[in-house]
Amino acid sequence: NQASVVANQLIPINTALTLVMMRSEVVTPVGIPAEDIPRLVGMQVNRAVPLGTTLMPDMVKGYA
C-alpha cells in the first residue's frame, strides 16, 4: 500500500510546509504520495490542516 502525507501537527492556513510538519502513513482515502514530501517543502497550505489529517492535492497551493 502506498503511504500518503499526513499532518504531524496543526498546520495553520497559509503556512509554508517544513519536513517536521509532515509524516508518511498508509491511510484511506489516499492523499498526496509520501514520495512528494521533498517537493512539498516550502509550499503553502490554503486551509488549516488539523493534526493527523491526510494532505490532499487541493490543500496545497501550486501542488495540483
Rank of each mutant, 00 (worst) to 15 (best):
N1S: 13
N1M: 04
Q2S: 06
Q2C: 02
Q2T: 15
Q2H: 15
A3C: 02
A3H: 11
A3K: 12
A3I: 14
S4F: 04
S4N: 02
S4W: 04
V5S: 05
V5Y: 01
V6M: 05
V6R: 06
V6C: 02
V6P: 00
V6F: 04
A7Q: 00
A7P: 02
A7H: 00
N8S: 11
N8P: 03
Q9P: 01
Q9A: 05
Q9D: 11
Q9L: 15
Q9R: 05
L10S: 10
I11C: 02
I11G: 00
I11T: 03
I11M: 15
I11R: 00
I11A: 02
I11N: 00
P12H: 10
P12Y: 15
I13A: 07
I13M: 09
I13T: 14
I13W: 08
T15R: 06
T15G: 10
T15W: 15
A16F: 05
A16S: 08
A16K: 08
L17Y: 00
L17A: 01
L17C: 02
T18C: 03
T18F: 12
T18M: 04
T18W: 04
L19P: 14
L19C: 03
L19Y: 12
L19G: 05
L19W: 04
L19D: 03
V20Q: 07
M21Y: 11
M21W: 06
M21D: 12
M22K: 00
M22G: 00
M22Q: 03
M22E: 00
R23I: 11
R23W: 05
S24C: 02
S24L: 13
S24A: 15
S24N: 06
S24M: 12
E25F: 09
E25N: 11
V26H: 11
V26D: 03
V26I: 06
V27D: 03
V27C: 02
V27Q: 12
T28L: 10
T28H: 15
P29F: 10
P29I: 09
P29W: 07
V30D: 05
V30C: 03
G31E: 03
G31H: 03
I32S: 02
I32H: 01
I32L: 03
I32F: 03
I32A: 03
P33A: 15
P33G: 13
A34V: 07
A34L: 14
A34I: 13
A34M: 12
A34E: 07
E35W: 10
E35Q: 08
D36P: 01
D36R: 11
D36H: 15
I37F: 08
I37R: 12
I37K: 14
P38T: 08
P38D: 13
P38I: 11
P38Q: 13
P38M: 08
R39F: 05
R39L: 08
R39S: 12
L40G: 00
L40S: 01
V41S: 06
V41C: 02
V41L: 09
V41F: 07
V41H: 05
V41P: 05
V41W: 07
G42E: 05
G42A: 05
G42T: 07
G42D: 10
G42Q: 06
M43E: 12
M43T: 15
Q44S: 04
Q44L: 07
V45S: 12
V45L: 10
V45W: 00
N46A: 02
N46P: 13
R47V: 11
R47K: 14
A48S: 08
A48T: 08
A48D: 10
V49W: 02
V49M: 11
V49N: 01
V49E: 01
V49C: 02
V49I: 05
P50H: 04
P50N: 10
L51F: 13
L51D: 10
L51T: 15
G52F: 14
G52T: 06
G52N: 11
T53H: 11
T53R: 13
T54D: 01
L55D: 00
L55Q: 00
M56W: 11
M56V: 06
M56F: 04
P57T: 08
P57I: 14
P57D: 04
P57Q: 08
D58W: 09
D58V: 11
D58R: 04
M59Y: 07
M59Q: 05
M59P: 00
V60A: 03
V60R: 00
V60Y: 01
V60C: 01
K61V: 12
K61D: 06
G62Y: 14
G62C: 02
G62R: 05
Y63W: 09
Y63E: 05
Y63Q: 06
A64Q: 10
A64F: 06
A64M: 14
A64S: 12
